[in-house]
Design a protein around this nucleic acid. Structure first.
Lengths: 376, 376
DNA sequence: AACGCTCTTGAATCACGTA
DNA sequence: TTACGTGATTCAAGAGCGT
C-alpha cells in the first residue's frame, strides 16, 4: 500500500523509494498498483501479441512451425485485449515518473490497439521505431510479404514531459549520423538464445540484447530504473544491469522467473561510469563502430591500443573512446593522440585477442558478414 | 477429360458496372456511398494524418476541429478522427469486391487509429509494410529519432477472402528473394514532384510513384480497378494507368483535381501485356499427370524414383503410380512413401533419361509448351 | 584449423478449384 | 456448404559432422 502523501508532493527524482533489481511474481497490473507512484524512469513492455493462429503451419519440407500458442497469448476478443491493454498501460503510467518514458513492442496483430490506447490515455508518442530483422522467418506459403519487422512505440507520459533522449549517444552509435526510426538487428538465436534442460527454447519470444541495448542507451541514464511488466526471460533486466541501470521485472510464470534470475546473476555490470555515461567506406555497407558493442564483439571498458602500443583508449558503451584527457569517436581519439589532423580509427585501433593484436576492422568485417545485404 | 483452362479464372464479382478512369469531386464518403457495391478491386488510401500541430482536422460534417492542447479536447479530436476514419473505411469496404484488398498509408499520428478501426470493421490485416525513406527530413531539435519511415497497412475484406498477391512478381522485383515487409524507396522530389505555376509544390504530401508501382504490382491484375478516395495529386491514378489498370479518384479540392487530371493525361499506358503480366505458377494451365502418358512422354511400366533413389514406383496407363503395397496419384504415392502429410509429385518424381534423372516437371513443361496456345 | 555440407529453426493471423 | 484431390511453397544463421 503506498504511503499517504500530499497531492503535488510527487517528486520528479523520487523521494519515494521502490525495491530495485528484483523480479516479482504475479499479475503485472496488481503488482504495479502496489508500487509507489512516479517511481520508475522507463518502462519497457513486451506484452502478449494476441496472435490469432488457426491450424498448423508446415514448411515446404513438411516440418511443423513451432507456433506461439501459449495460454498467455489467448484473448477472447479485441474488446478483451483492449481492456487488458488499457489496464496495464494505466497502471504503468502511474508508476512512471513524470519525465520518464515508455516503450512497447508489438506486431500488426496488436500494435495498432496498443497505440490507440496510448493516445487515449494521454501518453504522447515520440516515435514509432521499426525493428527490421536481418533473419526473419520466411513466408512459407507465398501468400504475403515476409513479415520481417516488429514495431516499437516510444512515448512520454504527456505532451510536455521532459523525457530523456541521449541524442549524442545515438548519433555516435550511428557513425555521427542521426539515429533513424528503422533499426536493423538480428533476431535472438544461437548462443544468446536461452534453453531449458531439455534443450528447448526457454521462452518462445526472447528478444535480442542488441535491441534492448539501444533502447536503454537511448532513453535512460546510469542509475535509472527500468520496469518491465512482462519480464519473460529477462532481457531488459540483463541489459539494464550490464549498462549500470536498475531493473524491476514483473512476471506471472515461475519457470520464466527462474530463467531470468539465473541469467541476470551471470551479468557483470559495468561499474566504471566513464564507460556508460553519455555526456556523444561508401560502397560497402556502413558499419558504425557502436554496432560492434551492441552486438557483443567488444565489451564496454575494453582497452584498445594503436599499432605500436604507444597509445591506449577505452571503449565506452555508446561507441566512443576515452583516454586520460580526451574522448570522441575512434577517428577523433586516434587523431588527437597522434597530433594528426585526421586518423582512420578502423585501421588505427587494435584489440588483444589471445595475446595477439587484432584490428577492429577485422571485427567490423565479421559483423558486416553477419549483417547481410538487407543493410542497404 | 477436363478442359484445359487457366486456374483462378473465377469472376471477381462485378456484374454491376462502375465508371472507370474518372476523377470525381466531392466528399469521398458520399461519393463511395453512391457507387455500386463490390465494384473495385483495390483501394489505396492516403487519408489526412491528423497531425496535431496542424489543427485543420475536419469533422465528418466538415466543421473544423479547433486547435487543442488539453486532454479533453485531445480526446475530442481523436474521437472525431476515429469517427471520420470508420465512416470512410466502412464506405470503402462496401464498394470493395469480396476478394479485393485495401491499402492505407499513415504515420504514428494516425496509423494506430486506422489499424484499430480496420480490425473493428472486420477487415483482415495481411501485412503492415514499412516505407523506409532514403532521404527523410532530419530531426532538427535533436529530441527524437529521425522519423525515417511511414507505415502502410494491407488488408483483405475479411479473413477468408481470396485476395490477389503476385508473389512471383514481387520475388523477381527483389532479386529472387521473397519481398519483405520493409521497402526502401526515396521520397518524391526532383522532376517527379509536381509544381504549380508559381513554382510551389502542387500538393503537400505527394507520394512517390515507385511506392505505388510496388503496391499496384503486388495486389492487382491488369484491367483491375483501383479506387483512391483521397486522390490528391493523383499518383495512384497515374501509376494505375501506366500499368494497364483502371483508376477512380475521389477528391474534394478542385485545384488538386486539375493537377491530377493533367498529370494522368500525360501518362502513356503500357499496352504490351508481356510487359505488365505477372505469370504465376499457380495460374498456369493444369496438366494432369495422365496426359504425359497419353501424349507418349512416358510409357506405362516406366520406373520413377524419388530425389535420392530410395523410393521407386511404376507408371500405370491410367496415370496412377503403383508400389508393392500402395497405388494412387503421383502426390499420394510420394506422400505415402515418405510418411509425409503431403507431397508435390511433380517435383518429387524423376525418370532416368540417358542415365541422368529428369524431373517429371520438365516433361510437364514440355507438354504444356506443345499444347495449343488457345487452350492456355 | 578451415571448409563445406546438411539439418534445424525463428511472435505466422500462410491454397484453391471442382464436384 | 462441405469434402476432396491437386500441387505450390523458405531465408538467414547456427550447430553438428566429416574431410
Amino acid at each position: 500500500m503506498p504511503a499517504l502523501r500530499r497531492r503535488g508532493a510527487r517528486s520528479r527524482g523520487g523521494t519515494t523509494s521502490v525495491q530495485k533489481d528484483v523480479v516479482k511474481q504475479g499479475d503485472c497490473i496488481a503488482l504495479m498498483e502496489a508500487m509507489p507512484e512516479a517511481s520508475v524512469d522507463m518502462v519497457f513492455a513486451d506484452p502478449p501479441y494476441n496472435l490469432q493462429l488457426e491450424g498448423d503451419l508446415l514448411r515446404p519440407n513438411n516440418s511443423k512451425v513451432d507456433a506461439v500458442d501459449d495460454a498467455w497469448d489467448q484473448f477472447d476478443s479485441f474488446a478483451a485485449y483492449d481492456d487488458f491493454t488499457r489496464r496495464w498501460l494505466r497502471a504503468a503510467r502511474r508508476v512512471l515518473k513524470d519525465n520518464g518514458s515508455l516503450w512497447v513492442i508489438g506486431s500488426y496483430h496488436n500494435i495498432f490497439r496498443v497505440g490507440t490506447a496510448l493516445q487515449d490515455l494521454n501518453y504522447w508518442i515520440l516515435n514509432d521505431v521499426v525493428w527490421r530483422k536481418t533473419n526473419p522467418m520466411p513466408n512459407f506459403r507465398g501468400r504475403r510479404f515476409t513479415n520481417a519487422h516488429e514495431t516499437m512505440i516510444w512515448a512520454a507520459k504527456d505532451k510536455d514531459a521532459r523525457y530523456t533522449f541521449n541524442y549524442d549517444a545515438m548519433k555516435r552509435l550511428n557513425d555521427d549520423l542521426q539515429m533513424r526510426s528503422d533499426w536493423l538487428i538480428p533476431i535472438c538465436s544461437g548462443g544468446e538464445r536461452l534453453k531449458n534442460d531439455k534443450g528447448e527454447k526457454a521462452h518462445p519470444t526472447q528478444k535480442p540484447e542488441a535491441l534492448l541495448h539501444r533502447v536503454i542507451m537511448a532513453a535512460t541514464k546510469p542509475g535509472d530504473i527500468v520496469l518491465d511488466p512482462f519480464f519473460g526471460s529477462g532481457t531488459s533486466g540483463a541489459v539494464a544491469r550490464k549498462l549500470g541501470r536498475h531493473y524491476i521485472g514483473l512476471e506471472r510464470d515461475s519457470d520464466y522467473i527462474a530463467v531470468a534470475k539465473k541469467r541476470i546473476s551471470q551479468v557483470q555490470p559495468i561499474t566504471d561510469m566513464e564507460m556508460i555515461d553519455t555526456p556523444a567506406k561508401r560502397q560497402e555497407a556502413r558499419i558504425p563502430f557502436g554496432w560492434l558493442i551492441e552486438h557483443g564483439l567488444l565489451e564496454p571498458g575494453t582497452v584498445l591500443h594503436g599499432p605500436d602500443k604507444r597509445w591506449r583508449a577505452k571503449v565506452r558503451a555508446d561507441g566512443t573512446l576515452i583516454t586520460a584527457d580526451f574522448k570522441g569517436s575512434i577517428h577523433q581519439v586516434g587523431a588527437h593522440l597522434q597530433g594528426a589532423p585526421s586518423c582512420n580509427g578502423w585501421s588505427f585501433w587494435h584489440v588483444k585477442a589471445d595475446g595477439k593484436p587484432v584490428s577492429i576492422d577485422v571485427l567490423r568485417q565479421k559483423l558486416r558478414a553477419n549483417l547481410p545485404k538487407t543493410l542497404n
